[in-house]
Design a protein around this nucleic acid. Structure first.
Lengths: 340, 340
DNA sequence: CCAGGGCGTGGGAGCGCTCCCATGAAGGAC
DNA sequence: GTCCTTCATGGGAGCGCTCCCACGCCCTGG
């Protein structure tokens, strides 16, 4: 049933080699033959066998997307689907395919490394939601696998694409400053995550730039979850800030609940800004002012970059390391008090 | 750099064939040799080349997940990530890999069919979120590709795994009946979708079983979106039902807004039940009573089924068509008025 | 003592493709 | 007319693996 080059050749009255030339669009095929072979290919619905091809080309036209820790967190916000959408779109248009690897534990990763990378399944890898100390990064780097990360990484050999978390946090904070708030607090993410660090850094930059004093009581660490937002806000209520920048929407929702339970109102008593723009941000009352990341673009740019690396792979070693940082967007709704 | 069987053989002082036997765990290898070869394999980190292997075995150990219409809808609810989680978990434990294909248009599908199926990339395919009339289904069936669908399909040759939408809708409706509601309405999904049909059918069954009269004014068609929920509810307000079963959480949220704008309260004036249990359901006020599908299990069972089909594939033709229907769960919160 | 049957092992063939070189026909320059 | 180039085409080799058969060893039974 599955046809081979040889059979197509027989049908078209030419050799295997000539059919191969037509399939791969190489020059040096007469117009007549090209036409004839093309017809046969079209009629039979022939398509070259991928495995046979990659056995000799050492290319699979498949890239991997690796999400090391498939935690629950990931699955309640639209980050992951949007990222994949960006990746697949670029893959589709470049005739590449996407292999998805999700892991719940570190043991799975080790397997993955052997099974997938070493077995030559993939031409390159995109890693997202990676923890700083993930050992897989080092291993991939060592194996010289084409690699692009989504979210920045300190290793200087790593190509990455990231949102400008710092700039976005500064922008959100400045928005609150511009609204006249004097005492602004922040609920941060877990500070062992680069993202979280960047967001506090942006917050601090804005505060510094406007010569706001920033006692440490106004910076409370959480872990991006609603629960930690509730708790953190409860602690912040002791110092009564007039505005709060939460490093995730989930934390902002938690903060909102804490504020309400204290008998206060958002935005009248305390203004609130979140980060992520998950669907909930728009659904709650008051709708949450927040920061929207260009997630889909992150995915497509990472892919674009990866494909460039792959295609340049055959050239000499010292290829340039690329880092792309995309701006985020402030979505102004009710919770900051700017509207109305 | 990448090692071959031959090289491992040389290092271990045996032939290519023997190494292959060790790798594939076949019998008829002496304990001594097995041990020695195993050591070499472990030390070198050797892994067989996937393409070479599948060139001869005609197996890739890769399955495809195809989502034909990567619409925005899909990306605002956690269906898709949860499904993938179920699929990958099963894939991981069976040493299979997952190739993901998302399409935004029908033209992409045609490509996909040729590029992916015919080129022998995949051993089998899982399709989800498929429209009834999707031409890809017919084509896959015709090509005798191992296929499992998530969500039922009328074609009698199709293996599928589905949630018991009918039973779940009946359960949700009966919950409202048990709470003493006499005039219960429903906001349906688009009736050209099987899911939506099943949910109305369940609603009708419950109403019939309790000999409730059901004038057509109590059944309003929507399209699963919040907007259509708002509109539909606005129309329903004319007949003033005491409870509403919405076929999606998004529609329930829309209905909630419409009810509020009419100056009425949930659940006091009108009780509300949704479907899906998206994160928003829990975040809104009052928290939404809704139906939770076993999405992750759907994914893992579909995969399990697919792998069975693949592994049985070599046997004779008339393989049994399998259909698995999993029950859903009613999550009781505030919006139905049962609590408190 | 030798025939016969395991069992462990080695090596040829071939999967479907690409790459490279050989071949032959056509064409241009002298 | 001859020689050399150019270009279209064919076919061998080999990618790394699995499958199959052949080979030699040892053990058993008559």
């Amino acid at each position: 049933m599955p046809l081979t080059l040889e059979e197509i050749g027989k049908l078209a009255g030419v050799s295997r080699s000539t059919v191969s030339r037509v399939v791969n669009g190489s020059a040096n095929v007469s117009e007549v033959v090209r036409e004839r072979v093309g017809q046969v290919i079209h009629q039979t619905g022939y398509h070259p066998h991928a495995a046979a091809r990659s056995l000799v080309t050492h290319r699979t036209r498949v890239i991997g997307v690796v999400i090391p820790e498939a935690l629950t967190k990931l699955f309640t916000d639209p980050f992951f689907p949007l990222l994949l959408r960006g990746v697949t779109e670029t893959c589709n248009s470049h005739d590449y395919h996407l292999m998805l690897s999700l892991f719940s534990g570190p043991d799975g990763q080790f397997d993955m490394h052997r099974r997938v990378i070493r077995s030559g399944y993939l031409d390159g890898v995109i890693m997202a939601s990676t923890r700083l100390d993930d050992p897989l990064v080092a291993r991939l780097l060592q194996d010289k696998v084409a690699l692009v990360m989504v979210g920045r990484h300190p290793d200087e050999r790593v190509n990455y694409v990231d949102t400008d978390n710092l700039g976005a946090a500064r922008m959100a904070t400045e928005h609150l400053i511009r609204l006249g708030h004097k005492k602004i607090a922040t609920l941060t993410g877990p500070l062992n995550m680069l993202q979280a660090q960047d967001r506090v850094a942006g917050f601090r930059q804005a505060m510094d730039a406007h010569r706001y004093s920033l006692p440490e009581s106004l910076v409370v660490e959480g872990d991006f979850t609603e629960g930690s937002g509730y708790e953190g806000m409860t602690r912040l209520l002791a110092v009564r800030p007039s505005a709060v920048f939460a490093a995730s929407d989930a934390m902002a929702v938690g903060a909102l609940k804490a504020i309400r339970h204290a008998g206060l109102r958002v935005p009248d008593d305390i203004a609130l800004v979140g980060f992520d723009d998950v669907p909930i941000a728009e659904a709650i009352e008051p709708a949450l002012t927040t920061v929207r990341q260009p997630i889909e673009r992150l995915g497509s740019m990472a892919t674009e970059l990866l494909l460039t690396l792959i295609e340049a792979g055959s050239s000499e070693e010292p290829r340039l390391v690329q880092r792309i940082v995309l701006p985020a967007e402030l979505i102004v709704r009710q919770s900051c008090g700017a509207l109305r």
